[in-house]
Nucleic acid binder design. Structure first.
Lengths: 233, 233
DNA sequence: TAGATTGTTAATCGATTAACAATC
DNA sequence: TAGATTGTTAATCGATTAACAATC
């Protein structure tokens, strides 16, 4: 309670915590009560010092020859991440990705719950998708302030991203999980976390492109593949 | 052609390239022919030296007072990323996320095309989803080798991720875009790129949790919100 | 005890930022 | 020309890894 926990944490550490949590939850389910940082490190293919440092950083201590207590570690990580209890969130944009997120059942383990969705299409008030009510975007700002919702998942088409984000900011949203590829221009007080799927894809495809210098390309002949595919099955 | 391009590139640089590309494509569409690195930097909220370094790194040079030629830059970035022409990919797992990816129309701009999808449920051969044929997973290995497909998008439920990845590796897939939260254990020769949505969510929620030390939580009272919501609209 | 694992300090590595002369 | 922008070198910053004594 008193000790020297930092007031700001390394982003890479925060990114790794969900992996520790997932692994530890799995071990706990299998009946274990503790795990050495060295084992966690081996599983995740990282240095064991890293694991110990990350856990120390949020206040966890291990025991030589035994490791880290699972129940305690899981608790502390969940608390640190804010996954210990549930925050209500609004989801804006019920396209394919938005609906996939509504259908995802892992959010309850991660401290969030989608309580309403919004779409610009003329959906009737009262419609539900997988038990989540869907309203016209025009009702969003009002509901944000009335229900004091602070988190929004943004899944609208790219051309609408900026204006929707501005609306959410004005309505009082304090954090946006941004699934659009748009760099949002909002007040500094609003936390924006980008889900950079394109950056991730870039990492994949650039590694495939031989050593990134050759003019070579693979598999450009996709018309042929479509034909073959139909014949092949 | 001869000059000192590195043989390995900083990951942060590769991650930024899609952002440069997107911005530059937008400017080009609006009729511009060049953009200063300083302008790109201001737009993306990063240091301008970074932009120049990143672009220099893949072989681009700018002109003082003018900046970087858009057509050339777009071309070089696309080529570097392997987005210049199209690779065929298989998608495994046609749950909500898988279907969202099939429906996403941005892949053609990013060098990939989903030519078939696979699912373990007993889907009839011949079924299509948004014009993409869907087959039983049992046919996947055979088709990978016959069509020489090298990329797979993995969107199966977590419990099936590891065994599906193993199957893909054995079938000859060389790169897996992994949407599951599972740390895949596959041959080192296979490129795995994780889409870490959970890490991203962690970054968001941990920043919301005051300064990460207090026991405070916001908005735990979601039962009340559900009731209010129904009444509110 | 022996030895696996811990926490911590120091060394290394790599990326970002600052400084500035060269350019058009 | 003047001055915005470039490319490049040096300084800073932050994260990872190595080393090792302390612990149970």
């Amino acid at each position: 309670m008193d000790s020297k926990l930092p007031t700001t944490y390394p982003l890479p550490t925060i990114r790794r915590l969900p992996h520790y949590l997932r692994y530890m939850r799995g071990l706990q389910r299998r009946g274990l009560v503790a795990v050495p940082g060295t084992t966690v490190a081996r599983y995740l293919n990282i240095d064991s010092t890293q694991v110990r440092k990350d856990l120390a950083c949020i206040g966890l201590a291990g025991k030589p020859r035994i490791g880290f207590d699972l129940a305690e570690s899981i608790d502390v990580i969940e608390d640190f991440l804010g996954w210990g209890n549930t925050s209500d969130v609004f989801l804006v944009g019920t396209g394919n990705l938005g609906r996939a997120l509504i259908s995802f059942d892992g959010f309850s383990d991660r401290g969030v719950q989608i309580i309403a969705a919004f779409d610009s299409d003329g959906i009737q008030p009262g419609t539900r998708y997988k038990s989540v009510p869907v309203y016209p975007v025009s009702k969003c700002a009002d509901l944000v302030s009335r229900l004091k919702v602070s988190i929004a998942f943004l899944c609208v088409p790219a051309p609408e991203a900026q204006k929707t984000a501005a609306m959410l900011g004005a309505a009082g949203i304090t954090a946006i999980w941004n699934f659009t590829p748009v760099k949002l221009d909002v007040s500094d007080s609003i936390i924006v976390e980008d889900v950079n799927m394109c950056s991730s894809l870039a990492l994949l495809t650039s590694r495939l492109t031989s050593n990134n210098n050759s003019g070579e390309r693979r598999n450009g002949d996709n018309q042929r593949n479509e034909t073959e595919l139909v014949a092949a099955v």
